[in-house]
C-alpha cells in the first residue's frame, strides 16, 4: 500500500497517521487539554518538551497502530483568518470551549460551520466543554450543547484538564471515528480503482486528478 498525500492513510500497512487540529478561543484551555493528554500534567511548566504546541501521541486501537499529531492553534481573534492554513488536510478537529463562557461556545459553533463548509464530512469533529471543574459557574447549557453537537454530526464531551476528567475518553472516541473514516475512504478508493480498471471510462479518474490539482493550486495561493 502506498502512502497517499491525504494525511491519515496507512503508512505501508503498518498503522495510521492522523492529524488533529485544536481550535477554540484563547484561554479556554486548549494547550492544557493536550498537555494533560500527552504528558499527564496540568501545569504546562512541568512539561518535558521544549514546546507545547505540537505534540505526538502513539496508541493502539483495535489492533491498529495509530499515530496522532496534535496541532495547537493560536486562539486570539486576530488569527482567526489563518484557520484554513492549519486545518487543511486534518483528519479530526477538537473544538474547545469554556463551560463558564458562552462566547467561547459561540466561537466553537463558528468553527464547526467553517469546517463543515470547507472540508465537508471528511473531518471528524468533537466539541469539548472544558473546565467542568468549575461547574458552579457553568453558563453553557449542557443539553443545548449536546443537541447542537448531534445536529452537526459531532461528538460532545465535558472535560477538565485540571482534574484529568474525560480527556482520554474524548481522544479515544475521536480516534475511533477517524479510523472508521479512513477505512471507509480506503474502501471507496479501492472500489474506484477497481471500477476505473474494469471500465473503459478511465477519464473519470482524470477528472478527479484535475480537482486535486485545483485544490493544490489553491493551497499554494493561500500560503
Amino acid at each position: 500500500m502506498a502512502t497517499t498525500p491525504d494525511g491519515g492513510e496507512s503508512i505501508g500497512g503498518r498503522g495510521y497517521n492522523f492529524k488533529v487540529v485544536l481550535l477554540g478561543e484563547g484561554c479556554v484551555g486548549k494547550t492544557s487539554l493536550v498537555v494533560r493528554y500527552v504528558e499527564d500534567v496540568f501545569n504546562t511548566k512541568h512539561v518535558t518538551t521544549l514546546q507545547a504546541s505540537f505534540l505526538n501521541k502513539k496508541l493502539s486501537l483495535a489492533g491498529r497502530r495509530v499515530h496522532l499529531s496534535i496541532w495547537d492553534t493560536a486562539g486570539q481573534e486576530r488569527f482567526h483568518a489563518l484557520g484554513p492554513i492549519y486545518y487543511r488536510a486534518s483528519n479530526g478537529a477538537v473544538l474547545v470551549y469554556d463551560v463558564t463562557d458562552q462566547d467561547s461556545f459561540e466561537k466553537a459553533k463558528n468553527w464547526v460551520k467553517e469546517l463543515r463548509k470547507m472540508l465537508g464530512a471528511d473531518i471528524c469533529l468533537t466539541i469539548v466543554g472544558n473546565k467542568i471543574d468549575l461547574q458552579k459557574e457553568q453558563t453553557v447549557d449542557t443539553k443545548l450543547a449536546e443537541e447542537y453537537a448531534a445536529s452537526v454530526g459531532a461528538s460532545h464531551f465535558h472535560t477538565s484538564a485540571k482534574l484529568n476528567a474525560g480527556i482520554e475518553e474524548m481522544f479515544l472516541e475521536l480516534c475511533k471515528r477517524m479510523l472508521e473514516q479512513a477505512q471507509k475512504e480506503a474502501e471507496q478508493r479501492m472500489a474506484a480503482d477497481f471500477q476505473a480498471a474494469a471500465s473503459p471510462r478511465r477519464n473519470v479518474v482524470v477528472v478527479e486528478d484535475g480537482e486535486e490539482a485545483l485544490e493544490t493550486s489553491g493551497r499554494s495561493a493561500c500560503c
Partner: peptide, 8 residues
Amino acid sequence: GPASADDF
C-alpha cells in the same frame, strides 16, 4: 515554561 501556540 514551554510555549503554547498562543505565544508561539
